[in-house]
């Protein structure tokens, strides 16, 4: 019984990782690829570790530590990537029809500062 529950949890985690890779292929630009690629992996790997905890309860503390480690490092790396990409001048706005006009607050502010 425990095996089945653990397998289901690990399978759901693997499903989220699969969704992340599909997102990497489908998204149109760098920022959105990061949204799909770096974040879905958080929940995916946490679910997989949770499955390990259910399967192998003796080592729960090590897996918990791995989950904490992911929680601390994942946002730092994705923030650094996004920031570097923005200062490289990669435009986050897409050319497409939408009701609300997309915008880039960071860029407009930096431009007005440079002009003044």
């Amino acid at each position: 019984m425990i095996d089945i529950i653990a397998s289901v949890v690990i399978l759901v985690g693997a499903l989220f990782l699969l969704l992340a890779s599909i997102g990497l292929l489908r998204m149109p630009d760098l920022y959105n690829r990061m949204q799909a690629g770096t974040k879905a992996t958080t929940l995916g790997s946490i679910l997989i570790f949770l499955g390990f905890i259910i399967l192998n309860g003796d080592n729960w503390s090590k897996y918990l530590l791995l989950i904490i480690f992911i929680f601390f490092t994942n946002p730092l790396s994705s923030h650094a990537l996004a920031r570097a990409a923005h200062f490289m001048g990669i435009n986050p706005i897409l050319d497409r029809e939408s009701e609300i006009s997309p915008r880039d607050d960071l860029k407009t502010e930096k431009d007005t500062e440079a002009e003044s």
């Binding site: 920022y31 990061m34 974040k39 994942n74 946002p75 994705s78 923030h79």
Partner: peptide, 10 residues
């Protein structure tokens, strides 16, 4: 940043 759909850029 950890919640999907939003990234803190600066």
């Amino acid at each position: 940043t950890l919640t999907p759909g939003t990234i803190t850029v600066d």
